[in-house]
């Protein structure tokens, strides 16, 4: 029994190594900087010899091909690799949106989960999440061979001040800058504007608050141009007694939170009134379609409204 169990475990460990290799080679192909046995050894944290053996084995199984330029995946290898990447990013999406895990915990857990999902499981998960286009870091979720694995974007540290931008990618390596960015509240999907670009720091504005990030962290953020939504503001800015008309729910409002707001009737066009405010202005209660709903600030910030003139 013990022999059988350890055999199964060996197979599983082997499969994880193979899949990690596939991912590494795929990433090299996508970035136009092909992987080699040496880079693989570094990535897997094994010896060069072990990496060579693994590559030879996989070549025999027709998963990849070796050339002087580096390693490339075969069609079969690419299909498998893509499925792993897809599983990883979908799992991160699931953890972030549905389970509510903090951004710093996603990668590690997804690294483990990606090897456990069956093809059916991946398909079911994708449907459940509504075929999302991107993972929580902003990376695209590939569906078919040829799909891009990274976004083309400009680094935030090179973005012009005063021009609105949409954050499309937040790199999770190195961990220190990722932690800084997460703590500062910088997330894919948000619209920002650079206020000041200093030599050590960059000051951004997200529509309501100013955020300061170091240059090093800013270089790990990818942005692209965006059309600014005219006039609308977060619901949390509505003062007691004021009314607003909902324009949209922020992209960052996801999962159960978004569904619940929709269910309660907070959809574009709805009129809401700020009726009650508790201590510290959090939570506030809003009159929505005849009922009174209390929302925390981190939720009312994700609902965009346009102020309506006061009725007499």
């Amino acid at each position: 029994m013990a022999l059988f169990r350890s055999r199964r475990r060996q197979e599983r460990v082997r499969r994880v190594l193979v899949e990690d290799t596939l991912k590494h080679v795929l990433s090299g192909m996508d970035q136009d900087r092909l992987a080699t046995a040496k880079s693989l050894a570094g990535h897997l944290q094994t010896s060069h010899q072990e990496a060579l053996e693994l590559v030879a084995d996989m070549e025999q199984h027709r998963l990849l091909s070796v050339s002087s330029a580096g390693l490339r995946l075969t069609e079969e290898g690419e299909e498998w690799a893509l499925r792993i990447v897809r599983a990883h990013r979908l799992w991160e999406r699931y953890l972030a949106d549905e389970i509510g895990k903090p951004a710093t915990a996603l990668h590690r857990e997804a690294d483990r989960a990606e090897h456990r999902l069956s093809p059916d499981g991946v398909e079911s998960l994708d449907a459940f999440l509504g075929y999302p286009r991107e993972d929580p870091h902003g990376d695209p979720i590939p569906a078919a061979p040829g799909d891009r694995m990274q976004h083309d974007s400009t680094s935030l540290s090179e973005w012009e001040a005063g021009v609105p931008a949409r954050v499309v990618h937040v790199e999770d390596e190195p961990a220190s800058t990722f932690l800084e960015l997460t703590r500062a509240g910088v997330r894919p999907g948000m619209t920002i504007e650079v206020r000041e670009s200093g030599s050590a720091d960059i000051t951004l504005n997200d529509g309501s608050n100013d955020i300061v990030v170091s240059r090093a962290a800013a270089s790990r953020v990818g942005v692209e141009a965006v059309r600014r939504h005219a006039d609308d503001m977060p619901l949390s800015h509505l003062r007691l007694g004021e009314k607003g008309r909902v324009t949209r729910l922020d992209e960052q409002c996801r999962g159960m939170s978004r569904r619940r707001l929709l269910d309660l009737g907070i959809v574009p066009g709805t009129i809401v009134e700020c009726a009650l405010s508790s201590m510290f202005s959090d939570p506030c209660a809003y009159r929505v379609r005849g009922s009174m709903i209390a929302l925390r600030r981190d939720q009312s910030e994700r609902i965009r409204v346009v102020r309506e003139s006061r009725s007499i």
Binding site: I99, G100, K101, P102, G255, M256, S257, R260, L261, L264, L276, P283, A285, S291, M292, I293, A294, L295, R296, D298, Q299
Partner: peptide, 14 residues
């Protein structure tokens, strides 16, 4: 029991 705060919507009935 680490984790994010869940969504909080509370109805205040009449």
């Amino acid at each position: 029991l680490k984790g994010e705060a869940s969504h909080f919507t509370l109805e205040l009935p009449s």
